[in-house]
Simulated scan of single mutants.
Amino acid sequence: MTLNDKTISKGFIIAGIMNSSVLLFSRLFTNTTIPEFDPTVMSNFGLLMIFVWGLAYISVAKVYKNVKWLIAIFAVEKFIYGCIWTNWMLSNNISTVFEKDSMAGIFYAIYGVNDWLFFIFFSFVFVRLMRFGDHK
C-alpha cells in the first residue's frame, strides 16, 4: 500500500479532528457519564489530554517527516488507548452507558476503534519513515 505525502498529512489532520470530537461527546466536559464509567482514564482531565493529543497530531501534519520518533510515540499512545478500550469493553456492559447517556455510549463504542485504526496509521508512517526517510 502506498500513500502519498498529501494523504499522510490529511491522516494526521483527521486523527486530530477525531480526538477533538471529545469536545462534542463530552459536551465541552460537562457530560458526567463519560468519567463515571472510567474515572481514571476518562476523567475531565483525561478528556482534555485526548484533545491536546489531537492538537499535537494536527501540528505535525505538514512536517511529519521531520519528527519520525514523535510519530512512533503517537503510535505507542494509540496502542495504549486501544488496549485500555479493549479491556474496558471486555469488563463492562456498554448498553448500560447507552441507557444512561447516548453521547457517552457512542463515545465508548467508537473511541477504541479509532485508536486502533490510528495506531496502524501512525505505525505505518513511522515504519515508512524509518525505511525510506524523505525519499518516498
Rank of each mutant, 00 (worst) to 15 (best):
N19T: 00
I71Q: 08
S95D: 15
I34T: 10
T33M: 14
G46I: 00
F79V: 04
I13S: 07
S20D: 11
R131C: 10
I80P: 09
S43W: 00
D115A: 05
F132T: 10
K100N: 10
W88A: 04
S123M: 06
N19Y: 07
S59R: 02
M18H: 05
A104N: 14
K78L: 04
T7M: 05
K136S: 09
G46V: 03
I34E: 15
L90E: 04
W53F: 04
K65H: 02
I58P: 04
I106N: 13
F12G: 04
I34F: 13
T40L: 14
A15M: 09
F79W: 03
L47S: 08
S43D: 05
T96W: 15
L117A: 01
T7S: 02
N19I: 02
G16P: 05
D38H: 09
V97Q: 12
N114T: 06
I58F: 00
F122Y: 06
Y81F: 12
I8V: 00
L47R: 09
A61Y: 04
A56N: 09
I73H: 12
K136P: 15
M1E: 14
T7G: 01
A61H: 05
G54N: 07
S43Y: 00
D38M: 08
V60K: 07
D101P: 15
A109T: 09
A109H: 11
T96E: 15
Y111A: 10
V127W: 11
S59H: 01
M89R: 11
D5M: 02
D101E: 14
L24A: 11
K10T: 01
F98M: 13
N66S: 09
R27T: 02
N31C: 08
D134S: 04
F118S: 05
G46F: 01
L90H: 03
I17L: 14
G112N: 05
V76E: 09
E36A: 15
G11P: 08
I8H: 06
I80F: 08
I120F: 04
D101T: 02
K68C: 07
S123V: 00
K100I: 03
A72M: 12
A61L: 06
K65F: 00
F51I: 05
T40D: 15
K100W: 10
S91L: 10
G133S: 04
C83W: 14
L55H: 04
F74C: 09
L70H: 05
V76Q: 09
D101Q: 14
I17C: 11
L55S: 02
S102H: 10
V22D: 15
I50N: 15
V60I: 03
Y111N: 12
G133H: 07
V113H: 12
K136G: 10
K10H: 06
A104H: 12
T33R: 10
D38S: 11
L3V: 01
I8Y: 02
Y111M: 13
I106H: 13
L55K: 02
Y111G: 14
S91Y: 07
G112F: 01
A56S: 08
V52G: 12
N19S: 06
S9N: 01
S59M: 01
G11N: 02
F126T: 04
F98T: 06
N4D: 05
T2W: 13
C83M: 08
F12M: 10
L117K: 10
Y111R: 11
